[in-house]
């Protein structure tokens, strides 16, 4: 029993077909619980009022936006090294989900920023790097869409993903260097904050607990969407193969 068994599309389809419904239902439930708990059962912040509750969408979406790219990077590496088609297709399926998460994070951030910072947008390092990440996603998806041959497309997008990851990290630090930030630093998950050893301010447990539920929900949602997308890609590939075979039979 090894992980590489799932490189076999038939095996992958069988297993993912069993997992997907459970995963989708669980994703819906957990996200609903997290978001509803966050929206209706937490107190309003003494300074931010009800706008603080945007955190339950904003933070999970931002987390998944970055993790989707990381997943694409790993999947691209697996394709480059071991040439498993399922891996390349999973990377392809993750990109639209990642770009949607990036957009959600940018949009909810703007909606929160308007009343809190008094502006929809600021050229803050975190905001700017998210915008750049959005552009990287667009370029990656455009390259997939532009190439007809599926193997060439998988190869070239993998190379772009590897090089792009390096440049995305470079951009992140370049942007830090370029401008001072308005956005708060990491304040949800921090080693010192959990053990209580650090005295910096962190998100109170009243908000942190529903936030964790919401993050788990978004993670499951991402998993379900990527599984569904990968299954669709595999089916599309099969249809193409069948059509090609039918044409061969006619000729």
């Amino acid at each position: 029993m090894s992980l590489w068994e799932y490189a076999n599309p038939v095996k992958f389809m069988a297993t993912s077909g069993r997992i997907l419904p459970a995963c989708a239902v669980l994703a819906g439930l957990v996200t609903l619980v997290g978001v509803c708990w966050g929206f209706f059962a937490t107190p309003e912040d003494y300074k931010q009022g009800a706008t603080v509750k945007i955190i339950f969408i904003h933070v999970p979406a931002a987390m998944m936006a970055i993790n989707a790219w990381a997943m694409m990077l790993v999947a691209s590496l697996i394709w480059v090294v071991r040439r498993h088609h399922v891996s390349a297709l999973a990377a392809k399926a993750a990109a639209p989900v990642g770009v949607a998460m990036t957009l959600i994070a940018l949009f909810t951030g703007a909606v929160w920023g308007q009343p809190m910072w008094g502006t929809w947008w600021a050229w803050d390092p975190r905001l700017t790097s998210f915008l750049i990440l959005f552009l990287f996603y667009l370029g990656y998806m455009a390259l997939w869409a532009a190439i007809d041959d599926p193997d060439t497309a998988a190869d070239l997008t993998s190379v772009l993903c590897l090089v792009g990851s390096v440049f995305a990290i470079l951009s992140r630090y370049a942007v830090n260097f370029w401008n001072q930030g308005l956005h708060q630093g990491a304040s949800v998950l921090r080693a010192g904050a959990v053990t209580g050893s650090d005295t910096e301010e962190k998100v109170s447990n009243v908000y942190a607990l529903p936030l964790f539920v919401s993050m788990a929900g978004f993670f499951l949602l991402f998993l379900a969407l990527v599984l569904m997308g990968t299954r669709t890609e595999i089916r599309a590939r099969r249809i193409k193969a069948l059509e090609a075979r039918a044409r061969m039979a006619d000729a």
């Binding site: 750049i132 552009l135 370029g139 455009a142 772009l160 440049f167 470079l170």
Partner: peptide
Amino acid sequence: LIVLPLYVP
């Protein structure tokens, strides 16, 4: 579209 984001840094 591919090159310009790489030019950012």
